[in-house]
Design a protein around this nucleic acid. Sequence first.
DNA 1: CAGCGAACCTGAGGGC
DNA 2: TGCCCTCAGGTTCGCT
Length: 275
Amino acid sequence: MPELPEVQTIVDYLNHHVLDIFIKKTIVHLPKILKNKTPQEFEKLLINHKIVKIKRLGKYLLFFLSNNLVLSVHLRMEGKFYYQAKEEWFNLAHTHIIIEFNNGMQLRYNDTRQFGTFHIYEQQSFLDSKELKKIALDPLDNNFSAQYLYEKLKKSNKAIKTALLDQSVVSGIGNIYADEILFAAKIFPTILAKNLTLKNYEKITKEAQRILLLSIKNKGTTIHTYKFGNDETGLFQKMLLVHTHAKEPCQICGTIIQKTKVNGRGTYYCPNCQN
DNA sequence: CAGCGAACCTGAGGGC
DNA sequence: TGCCCTCAGGTTCGCT
């Protein structure tokens, strides 16, 4: 499901709604979402504590708790959070975890495909965890640069699109934005990363930052099921130039947009602009 | 280590 | 209406 702009939108929304409220109870309908705790341990660790701050690391949401623990959540393809009154209807079939606050509201984790993950770590060591330690800088990080990307990829035999999807190279970019970034940078998706120049990486970096920021401004991209807050959708899908536009004329040059598979992922490109 | 497909799941949509 | 196939904002595992 969500990539950097969608996760950032969800983090921004939740930071405005769920901070500094005591957690009253938790309900876990699908224990396998909790990867390193039992439902009993999960409740014991959260109850009578508060969420102090929520941050994003790549595509992970990090909930910092008042007891110096960190709840790290990955939404994978379809994970969603709803913040609703406990009386309000919800889809029982796909709501797997509920955190209820003492103000009568519930934070509900909904995930049709059940791919999402919850981990709880100590605040001083969460970055050492197996999943989080490999997350590279994202393009909006102050320390990110074209030089950084170039150094990481100048010997890589991967297709540039595959490299951009590798979260240990650059984090936050997924299938939609990889296509849009390479289109904007006029780079063919299957070119090997090692064959690109620093100048190419400067273009990729610049376009990645522009596109991701523009998408955050538009609350992300809703193609299938991504939602944030109380069932709101993003708007950036209206600004996609290649992704989902197979068989349509390119808005820049009129050539028909092609769809293919790169590393098993649907990939859209303009054979003229990205030649 | 690279590269590839399968696996994890459910549901929507198209073709017949 | 129903069946079968493909596809889906992601990641990890296991095989060659």
